[in-house]
């Protein structure tokens, strides 16, 4: 295969696919406006801070001394088991916990800048006497700050799964693939062009969504933009690979649609896009680790909220790379033009 000719063919498909997407006004609008609307509605709904719910992290719940039991019996407080205190303390600093109890150590931590922490501290001593007070400090993370990485990840997921997988199944069904197969264009060139086209369009759209939501609601970004871009690109590649696998042989849009929904909806619910899985059953949290969106959202959240560096999110990045390699290999093996 002559590399220059190969690149020319792939670039021609890349350009044609870009035109197809950018001229489809409905599709562009949906990709840009939908995520912004979600963020706006959630920002409006959850910035009122009107939920009368406290969240308390509990370390060593099994070894709870008698004096803490009365506190734990209080209503309207959600107790979340904490396995690792060192991991939980930064979350307390960001107001993700209102209070942190270390029962074996006979102490508790409170964020001095948290109103909920202040209120809980008024309740704690009478209910659980004898616990030593420890203090941390830090500004809270608003729900919208926590939500934005999830929405960006969700947008990447939908755009990748439906933008590539659905399009290829449609091409197969209506005969576009058959016509392309009759040319010197190889499957590698065709698929490579589609991956590249969707990838750069996702980056373009995600930047638009990012800027739009930042302008409208404002949110935290404490890490590197380049690292966030890397996370989104690797996340998009893993999702595109997944969609290529789904589209490898299907020739029916309805089946593809059903299958893509079957994949995307559980992924959206289990990958902490909307809510944290802390406190949920272990099996659910383990299942979530198998989903690429979990790693994409987790890494994006770590970069944007915690200001994490590459080393800190290396496990998530490695998972995304591994997922991409595995899914791409399977998709390439399974792909059929007809």
């Amino acid at each position: 295969m002559e590399p220059r000719a190969s690149l020319r063919r792939a670039f021609a498909v890349f350009r044609a696919r870009n035109r197809e997407f950018l001229r489809d006004r409905m599709s562009v609008s949906w990709n840009l406006i939908f995520p912004v609307l979600i963020v706006l509605s959630f920002a409006f709904a959850f910035t009122q801070e009107n939920l009368a719910l406290f969240k308390v992290g509990v370390h060593g719940a099994a070894e709870a001394p008698e004096q803490a039991r009365a506190f734990r019996d209080l209503k309207y407080i959600r107790f979340v088991p904490v396995a690792d205190l060192q991991r939980a303390l930064p979350q307390l600093e960001r107001h993700q916990y209102d209070l942190l109890l270390d029962l074996p150590g006979g102490r508790y931590w409170v964020n001095e800048k948290s109103p909920q922490g202040y209120m809980l501290e008024r309740i704690l001593p009478p209910s659980a006497p004898g616990l030593t007070r420890q203090a941390v400090s830090g500004e809270g993370v608003r729900y919208v700050d926590w939500l934005i990485p999830g929405v960006l990840g969700m947008n990447v997921m939908f755009s990748s799964l439906f933008g590539v997988g659905y399009a290829i199944v449609r091409y197969r069904k209506n005969g576009v693939l058959k016509r392309l197969r009759a040319t010197p264009l190889s499957a590698f060139e065709f698929l490579g062009a589609h991956v590249a086209s969707r990838l750069w369009l996702i980056v373009l759209v995600t930047v638009g969504v990012y800027l739009g939501t930042d302008l409208l609601v404002g949110f935290q970004m404490n890490g590197s933009y380049w690292l966030l871009l890397l996370v989104l690109v690797l996340g998009a590649l893993s999702m595109i690979s997944l969609s290529l696998l789904v589209a490898a042989r299907l020739a029916n849009e309805e089946t593809a649609n059903g299958l893509l929904n079957l994949i995307s909806w559980p992924m959206m619910l289990l990958s902490e896009v909307w809510f944290s899985l802390e406190g949920s059953p272990e099996a659910v949290r383990q299942a979530a680790q198998a989903l690429p969106l979990t790693h994409l959202v987790g890494a994006a959240r770590a970069v944007m909220i915690d200001g994490a560096g590459a080393a800190q999110i290396a496990p998530q990045l490695a998972m995304l790379v591994l997922t991409t390699a595995l899914l791409l290999a399977l998709a390439a093996r399974w792909f059929r033009w007809d």
């Binding site: 696919r17 005969g175 058959k178 016509r179 009759a182 040319t183």
Partner: peptide, 30 residues
């Protein structure tokens, strides 16, 4: 593949492309 031309009984073309762009797309494959 380089020397054959094909016109199928039923062929769909990529949406949102003009006649000229479609010709250019296929020309670039050869």
């Amino acid at each position: 593949r380089q020397e054959a031309g094909m016109m199928f009984q039923s062929t769909a073309l990529q949406d949102f492309l003009t006649v000229g762009e479609t010709l250019d797309l296929f020309a670039s494959f050869y």
